[in-house]
């Protein structure tokens, strides 16, 4: 049997790699180094020209299937193709992002090839040739160390939780001919908001809660735009219909870990705190000095957000000037 490898699945959208791809490659390289084996990247639905870049993030080989039918991610075709690649390449570890794509793709592949899968990993260790990963449960209220036993072992890593590391290497690009196999799903269309920063990938998140008092989030949006961040919302704000469900941060929404999380008019219900407590720095603005959010915030201001946030915007503009 040839030497096993770590197989890293890249993720592209409109033929550009998503940020998670670089996180997956960097972490894959680190695992491959621990195991003393090569790192092979897989790119589906994008060209060899852009795929070369993955060598700079540690890939020794870059397998590219630039098939027109793989331009848009569709679960069954992707599962079929990747399961075939796993069969041929015989990896000991498969690593991919726990994005909306990676979550269902990894789950389907794990069931297909009967391999252990750890979802939403925030740390990966290699112990005696096996993966031991750390992942949040209960929306982040608990962290679990999970040992995987099987071959290959699949790790889906949480976006924004692994560092991106460039290396001096240049991987060799190999063109793959692939068979899409039996497919039942038809891609109809996609509707993406252009320029919108995705919450789970954002470096800065400005969130609003019940204290917003209505659907006018313009002060929050303005601060988010200024800091090139994303707008989040508490469950109350979403339940009130003020914000779309996709903005919800918390145990029944998105779990986020930006560099900076600013909670405005959010009291800090336990299920919200679970979803944002792993942010690097938390600031909170709330009228109620006893709001639980202040017990998690690095910096708090007791006051009216509609008075404070515009002043924060002015002050931020000054330092940016």
């Amino acid at each position: 049997m040839s030497q096993q490898c770590v197989l890293a699945i890249a993720e592209q959208s409109d033929a550009a790699f998503r940020k998670i791809t670089y996180e997956v490659l960097s972490e894959g390289r680190r695992i491959a180094n621990s195991l003393g084996c090569p790192l092979t990247a897989v790119v589906l639905g994008a060209g060899e020209d852009i795929s070369k870049e993955l060598g700079e993030y540690g890939a020794d080989r870059i397998l590219v299937a630039d098939n027109q039918a793989l331009r848009e991610y569709v679960n069954d075709a992707y599962t079929n193709v990747i399961a075939d690649i796993i069969d041929k390449e015989n990896p000991c570890v498969v690593i991919l992002g726990a994005s909306t794509q990676g979550k269902e793709l990894s789950a389907r592949i794990a069931a297909r090839i009967n391999a252990p899968l750890a979802m939403d990993c925030v740390a990966v260790q290699v112990e005696n040739g096996n993966l031991v990963i750390t992942r949040p449960m209960y929306g982040g209220k608990i962290l679990a160390d999970v040992a995987l036993d099987g071959n290959p072992q699949i790790a889906a890593i949480r976006p924004n939780s692994m560092s991106i590391v460039k290396t001096a290497g240049a991987g060799s690009v190999e063109k793959l001919e692939v068979d899409l196999g039996k497919t039942d799903l038809t891609f109809v269309e996609k509707n993406l908001e252009t320029g919108k920063v995705e919450l789970t990938e954002a470096d800065v998140i400005i969130s609003g809660g019940r204290g917003m008092g209505g659907s006018d989030f313009s002060v929050i949006e303005e601060l988010a735009d200024l800091l090139k961040g994303a707008v989040g919302a508490s469950r109350s704000a979403v339940d009130e219909g003020w914000r779309p469900v996709s903005d919800q941060v918390g145990q029944t929404g998105k779990v986020v870990s930006p560099n900076l999380y600013v909670a405005c008019g959010i009291s800090g219900a336990i299920q919200h705190l679970a979803g944002m407590s792993s942010s690097r720095v938390i600031a909170a603005i709330n009228k109620d000095p006893d709001a639980p959010i202040f017990s998690k915030a690095d910096y708090g201001i007791v006051g009216d957000l509609f008075e404070i946030v515009p002043l924060v915007i002015d002050e931020t503009k000054k330092i940016k000037a």
Partner: peptide
């Protein structure tokens, strides 16, 4: 089972910080 929980722990406790 191919996945086994070895330990669970609480996430690092965040200290309430400074009220400005």
């Amino acid at each position: 089972p191919m996945t086994k929980i070895m330990a669970v722990k609480y996430p690092p406790e965040r200290e309430g910080g400074t009220i400005i």
